[in-house]
């Protein structure tokens, strides 16, 4: 099989349909549960398609908008800090979507953590992978690794240093372990050198990592460095 050109693997003609070679047990389980749920009438196949479309469409841009708007509009910032879930509606994010009652793991209790010159916040979920998906999209692979989860609570300054973030000794580092139904996002401080910028320009530098709390925004920083993640077995993601 490895050397014969029989139409599989690298020998495939361009445009030929690619077939997944392996389906994981979890994928089979998901399929089985989904089919049962549809048969039982809990949701329809069309609902499922809509959920999948929603999941494909979310990303950190919602969070970026929230922060940029808060930076230019002090009154919005107060509303955002007072009731994060409600303030999200002002930038078009409804935590009750796509089902009308929220997604099974996102709930509707969203809190924004404000960084100050004396306080830096960072989020982690030690028990699983809780993450504010409606505003930040799907979590990065490294966020879900046991290494990040156990080390961020125990040795947070070392982990931040590995991300290239060194905080001064007089800045309190506060780790938020989202172990229950609250979901958190960090509101970083607006960096110097962005005076007079539009909300849209500002949103570009509020990247995912700055809202998790493992990086700080800067005028010339518009994307997070891609970090290779070693998962169990040494497989690279």
């Amino acid at each position: 099989m490895s050397t014969r050109h029989d139409g599989h693997g690298h020998g495939e003609a361009p445009g030929e349909f690619q077939i997944a070679t392996k389906v994981s047990e979890f994928e089979i389980l998901e399929l089985a549960v989904r089919e049962l749920a549809i048969e039982k009438g809990l949701f329809s196949a069309e609902d499922h398609r809509k959920f999948a479309e929603w999941a494909d469409g979310i990303g950190p841009h919602g969070g970026s908008k929230l922060v940029a708007k808060a930076w230019v509009d002090p009154e919005f910032k107060q509303r955002l800090l007072a009731d994060g879930t409600k303030a999200c509606l002002e930038v078009g994010i409804d935590w009750l979507q796509p089902t009308g009652s929220g997604t099974p793991s996102d709930y509707t209790f969203f809190y924004v953590l404000e960084n100050t010159p004396k306080l830096h916040n960072v989020i982690v979920c030690t028990l699983c992978s809780c993450y504010p998906r409606p505003v930040l999209g799907m979590s990065p692979d490294w966020y879900r690794t046991p290494n990040y989860r156990r080390r961020m609570v125990r040795r947070p300054r070392e982990v931040l240093a590995e991300f290239g973030l060194h905080l001064p000794e007089d800045v309190e580092l506060r780790v938020h372990d989202s172990n229950q139904k609250s979901r958190f996002m960090v509101m970083p401080m607006r960096p110097e050198g962005t005076e007079g910028w539009s909300e849209k320009q500002l949103a570009e530098i509020v990247t995912r990592d700055t809202m998790i709390g493992v990086a700080l925004p800067a005028p010339n920083r518009k994307s997070d460095t891609k970090t290779e993640t070693l998962v169990s077995g040494g497989r690279r993601r």
Binding site: R174, V175, Q180
Partner: peptide
């Protein structure tokens, strides 16, 4: 009812490598 509780990192980890002002918050019923 649920509550957020703030701990001093020095209390949680006897060999904590950060600074004394560092804290951790998490939630309990």
């Amino acid at each position: 009812p649920f509550y957020i509780v703030r701990f001093k990192q020095d209390d949680l980890w006897p060999d904590y490598t950060g600074h004394h002002i560092d804290t951790l918050e998490t939630e309990f019923s």
